[in-house]
Amino acid sequence: MSLELRNISRSFDGKQAVSNISFSAQPGEIIGILGTSGCGKSTLLRAISGLDSSYNGEIAINGNTTKEIRDTTGFIFQESRLFPWLTVLDNITFGLKGNKQDKIIRAKQYLEHVGLKECGELYPRQLSGGMAQRVAIARALVTSPEILLLDEPFSALDAFTKMQLQDLLLNIWKTYQSTIILVTHDIDEAIYLCNRIIILRGQPGKIDKEIEIKEPHPRDRGSKQLVEYKAKILDSLDLNKPSVKTS
């Protein structure tokens, strides 16, 4: 499933949030959109998802440029956004259509996949933050989306849970080979997960740089190559300079 953005611009009340963004994603690619806050990363993702349709430009998924929500995309938000009145299992089957028995079997399979086999009958209030986000991941995956959109999905989690879930995401990606667009402000996360990182800068946000990360998965979080990539990204965000001065 290929994704192509052509000259996407979006303004809110006359003020431009992003301008002239164009890029394309190959099937099965993990693309990271990295940038400081306020440069329009989430705006871009909402446009791709179809939740926001008041943008200029074209977004083509497999050549189709409709501005509506498509059932081939899944969205994982920063918060888990589970429905508090549904059990974990019902939350996962929420978006599924068809026979109830089949839905439950399918949901259980994905629940096991995210490591929460025993938790199907719990209510969201009984879950920890990491567990809730796992359920959200299962809920987004259960419809077999070909494009998975993630909006800072792990930013509210502690460092350890975050790493666990990043690995979980990679596992899932390996199994389902979906195209992933990951919005993040966490440089380490982007380097660890993505095949390509698109750096947005400025207000309105524009594409500043594209960095390809050729290291094969799984990657070593502490490896020299990744550190070099990090230095490169920090440089391009002008974040490396103060430390150079002081040292």
């Binding site: 879950l127 920890s128 990491g130 849970t161 666990q164 690995d167 979980l168």
Partner: peptide, 13 residues
């Protein structure tokens, strides 16, 4: 990898 999480789930229950 998920053991930590599961332990925490046990904690919740």
């Amino acid at each position: 990898k998920h053991e930590g999480e599961i332990a925490s789930s046990a904690l919740v229950t």
